[in-house]
Design a protein around this nucleic acid. Structure first.
Lengths: 339, 339
DNA sequence: ATGAAAGCGCTAACAG
DNA sequence: CTGTTAGCGCTTTCAT
């Protein structure tokens, strides 16, 4: 079984390559090629299992119908979900997606952007490390279609789709307060991520309008690389001593998971002694003991919207209106806050 | 900022395209191009931010340095993890990976294989729906490099990397027996998947050598599409009545999760009344109440091995030594089996 | 040591 | 209605 090419089928059927190409691209009718010929061509192609070479096609047309997705880590539940949605929506719109993980490393991200560009992707969706401002600017200068997702550069005027982090943690904090907690701690990741900033701000804002304050030891920002190691100490700091918390908010699902692990190890009762709440959730949060109250991000909507925005820009159906979306999160109330 | 091409730099430097191409591919020395010229070319390329067009390159060389990964669903924790490992290892070996989800649908899988072939991937890694025997045969006939992962066709002589499902559930069952359980039920998925068959066989084998038997109502095979809906009834069947189980083994992580959900809803005490154990696990299984004892699959090793096998086959066009690996699972003993 | 030229497989004007 | 032709951007003999 050997591969057959356009020219083979043209030769064997004594028609021109053009005819074959046209017919196989469903442009037979509009170019008025006889039904007869079309049938023969299609039949032959099917019979010999003709598979067009996309490389050649793309090279010739200057379009790959591919969009690149750059995320921090495909193994993370959140990004995996997102990748799934992106893939799905892209396929519906006739695009293939190729992805790569930046592993939260700016240089790697730079490399990936470059790699994707030279693979001629038509557009890019990036959940950036947010330490690559320059690359973004470069993309803008190239007028290359791209949209930032989950994380964006607040001072850059690009397309983006993010969750409303500020409102999210604000609501979460208020939920805690409504449940009678007043000494609310925060465990976050130390990073320049705007998302993390916003989450912290939302928390602080809610606290301040409620007239509460957070002493210094209430806010922990762990190192991104080894938060798992630092978690024990952070939790200990918060729950021991006179200035102890009665609630802890975690800014990501994995922090919540590891925080709970530590809390259990220390024998702290959740939620009676300390309530916990998580921004973003894991599939099993409802099974955990106690089931964890969490803010759910609209991953699917984020993914879909991102795809739609790039595709829109790629196809420039119109003068691309900069798409900047801030999506609402949803509070899933379970048991870890005491109600 | 406009893109610069090979010919541009050749023109501007008054050298030939050949020279530029050679130098930029690090073949300058072996083709004895003067250091002088090389320096100029490299400097110019860097200065103008030259990015080679991979499409053209690949078309010309007949090699894309890309491997395709087809999995049931990127949103599933197991496959997401796997994709991450595959990506990582592939990159180390100089390959890019493009993935797509078959959504467990054979026709979709067929389409994806085709799509990847026409994108000229150099090789394929497939976690097949196992309902596409023909496609696999076709790939073999084409002598196209591919390796099956997680799921394989037992009657086909292909490369594959799978977990030792049989041994896995056998060990799990024995663990249950060692913990004093004798009336052990099984909840699995109704499907032609060899992996599921093996898991069931391992369970039955262990049971039989221990002299136990499983009455009809002890084995539930739920519909793949709506196992979540069927779970309630299945569990009820197993735990109520005189012929009730004292342990349940779930053949996948999501079954274990939803089974536990139902068990809790019914107020059944785990593990005192019923022990549970899961084949494959979720990141949060240690936080669940009770922490779930589970068999862990060597995802990373599976992913890495798969990549190594395809790459080997891609690069050694020689008579490829069929790589067939059956990897051991590891029992993570936690609390759900009563010890 | 360097360059000319012939493709890789397909698309798309442009002629007939 | 169909065929000719000229690329797309890069690699790679084969001369020089």
């Amino acid at each position: 079984m050997k591969r057959v090419f356009l020219k083979d089928i043209a030769r064997d059927l004594s028609v021109s390559k053009t005819a074959v190409s046209l017919v196989l691209n469903n442009k037979g009718d509009e170019n008025k090629i006889s039904q007869e010929t079309q049938k023969r061509i299609i039949a032959y192609a099917k019979k010999h299992n003709y598979v067009p070479n996309q490389l050649a096609r793309a090279l010739s047309r200057g379009k790959t119908e591919t969009i690149g997705l750059i995320i921090p880590n495909i193994s993370d539940a959140f990004y995996a979900k997102m990748a799934g949605c992106v893939e799905q929506r892209a396929m519906e719109l006739g695009y293939t997606v190729i992805f790569s993980s930046s592993k939260e490393r700016p240089e790697k991200e730079t490399g990936l952007i470059r790699a994707m560009l030279n693979r001629q992707v038509d557009g890019l969706i990036i959940a950036s490390t947010q330490k690559n401002r320059e690359d973004m600017v470069k993309l803008q200068q190239l007028k290359f279609p791209f949209v930032l997702v989950d994380r964006h550069y607040p001072d850059l005027k690009t397309n983006y789709v993010v969750a409303d982090n500020f409102e999210g943690t604000k609501k979460m904090t208020q939920h805690l307060i409504k449940n009678g907690r007043t000494r609310i701690g925060l465990v976050s990741i130390e990073s320049g991520l705007d998302a993390m900033q916003q989450r912290r701000l939302g928390y602080e804002h809610a606290l301040s309008i409620a007239g509460h304050k957070a002493p210094g030891n209430y806010i922990k920002e762990l190192n991104a690389e080894n938060h798992a190691q630092e978690m024990g100490q952070a939790i200990l700091d918060m729950v021991k001593g006179q200035d102890s918390v009665d609630a802890i908010m975690f800014t990501t699902h994995y922090l919540a998971a590891s925080g709970l692990r530590e809390l259990k190890a220390l024998g702290v009762k959740v939620p009676t002694e300390v309530a916990i709440i998580s921004f973003d959730e894991l599939g099993a949060f409802d099974l955990v003991s106690p089931p964890i109250t969490a803010s759910k991000q609209p991953v699917e909507l984020m993914g879909n919207t991102a795809v739609e925005l790039v595709v829109h820009e790629i196809e420039k159906k119109t003068a691309a209106p900069k798409g900047q979306r801030r999506l609402e999160t949803q509070l899933m109330v379970r048991k870890s806050c005491g109600s």
